[in-house]
Design a protein around this nucleic acid. Structure first.
Lengths: 199, 199
DNA sequence: GTCTATAGGCAGATAGAC
DNA sequence: GTCTATCTGCCTATAGAC
C-alpha cells in the first residue's frame, strides 16, 4: 500500500499554515484548550477565515491528526529503509519522539488521548489509528529480528514488546515535560528498555 | 513524617461529595472539559453551592489532587507494610492503577499532566509532586532489594528503573483506555516489565 | 449552606459585504 | 478568501435573599 497519493489533499498555503499552528498548539495545550481565537491571533487572521478552511473544530482536529499520522508513516518508512539492525531502528524511532519533546511539545496523539472522552468521533478514530499504526509497525520490526525481544523474559510475543515500547514512550513524554529539562531522563528510560530488548 | 494529621482538612459531607464527583470527572475528561455545571448536575446542586465550598476552579482542582496524593500515599504505605518481596510489591502497586483503568478512568495526574500548560500553578505543582512521590517511593523499594533491577542491563540506578516503571504505567493507561477492553494489554505490558526487573 | 438571578467573558459558528 | 458583525450558548464567578 503506497502511502503517498491515496488522498491528494492539496491544501492552500493558508490551510497549511492553519494546520501548522493548530498542531503546535494542540501538542502543548490539548484539544479543548485551543480556540479559533488563539489560532487567529497567531496567524493574523480572523476566526471567520479559519472557519472558511475548516468549517468545524472537528474538521480541523481530524485534518491535523490525519496529516500527523501520514507524516509519521513516512518517517517510519525512512527508518526501515535506511537501517536494518533492530537496535538502530528503535533508537531512531525513539529520536522521533525525543525531537518533539526537545521542542517543548508532547506527542500529538498522546495529549489527544488524554482528552479522549471529549473528542469528536472522527478525531478519536484517527488517534486510535495512530496508536495502531505504531504497534503494528513495531511488531513487524521486532518480528523481523532473529532473536526479537529476547531480553524480556515475561513477554511472549513481539506484539507484547511493541505495546510495552509504545506505552513507555508515551508515558515518558507525559511525565517528563518542560519545567526542568527532563529530555535526558526520557532518553535514559528508553535506552534502558532498548538495551534490554536489543542487546 | 507521619502522613496523617499534618493538615486536618475535615470536610463537610457536601465538600467531600463534590471532591468525589470532581475527581471522577477529571479522570475521564481532563481539567478543562469539566465545568461547575457538570458537577452541579451530578450532585443535584447549583453552581453557586459549589462555589461556596470551593471559591475558584483552581481551589477545587488543587483540593482534588491533594486528596488524591494523600490517599495514594496511604496505599503505598500499606503495600510496603504488608509485603516484603520486590516482585509482590510491584505487582500490588500496578494493581492500584489497574483498578482505576478497570473503572473506565485514567490516573488523575496522568490526565492532568496532559493539560499541564493550562493548569493553574498550584494544581500543576501538586501534579508534579505526585510524580515525584511515585519515583521516590519506587526508587526506595528498588534500592531495598538486594539485586534490584538486575534484569535491566541498560539501567545503572534504581532511580532509572523507577522512572521507567512510572512512565510505562502512565503511558499504558493512556494508550489502553476503554473502547475495547484493553485492561489485559495494560496488565501484560507491566507483567512483562516486572518479570524482567524482579525475576 | 443553598438558592435565584445575573454579570461579563469567551466559546464555536454563520451571514453577508468586499 | 478574508473581512465585520453578530448569534447563541456555556463558562467562571458574585450578590443577595432565604
Amino acid at each position: 500500500m503506497p502511502d503517498s497519493d491515496e488522498a491528494p489533499t492539496d491544501r492552500s498555503r493558508t490551510a497549511t499554515r492553519i494546520l501548522d499552528v493548530a498542531e503546535r498548539l494542540f501538542q502543548r495545550r490539548g484539544y479543548n484548550a485551543v480556540s479559533y481565537a488563539d489560532l487567529a491571533a497567531e496567524l493574523d487572521l480572523t476566526t471567520a477565515a479559519i472557519h472558511y478552511h475548516f468549517p468545524s473544530k472537528a474538521d480541523l482536529g481530524q485534518a491535523v491528526v490525519t496529516r500527523y499520522r501520514r507524516a509519521n508513516a513516512k518517517q517510519r518508512a525512512a527508518i526501515r529503509a535506511e537501517t536494518s539492525a533492530l537496535r538502530a531502528r528503535l533508537q531512531r524511532y525513539v529520536e522521533l519522539y525525543a525531537g518533539v519533546l526537545a521542542d517543548g511539545g508532547m506527542c500529538l496523539c498522546g495529549v489527544l488521548a488524554a482528552d479522549e472522552a471529549t473528542l469528536p468521533t472522527p478525531v478519536r478514530r484517527e488517534v486510535r489509528g495512530f496508536f495502531d499504526d505504531q504497534t503494528d509497525w513495531l511488531t513487524s520490526i521486532l518480528a523481523e529480528d532473529i532473536d526479537g525481544g529476547a531480553g524480556l523474559d515475561g513477554c511472549a510475543s513481539p506484539r507484547q514488546v511493541a505495546d510495552l515500547l509504545l506505552s513507555t514512550i508515551e508515558g515518558a513524554m507525559l511525565t517528563h515535560r518542560s519545567p526542568r529539562n527532563e529530555l535526558n531522563t526520557f532518553r535514559a528510560s528508553l535506552r534502558c528498555l532498548i538495551d534490554t530488548i536489543a542487546s
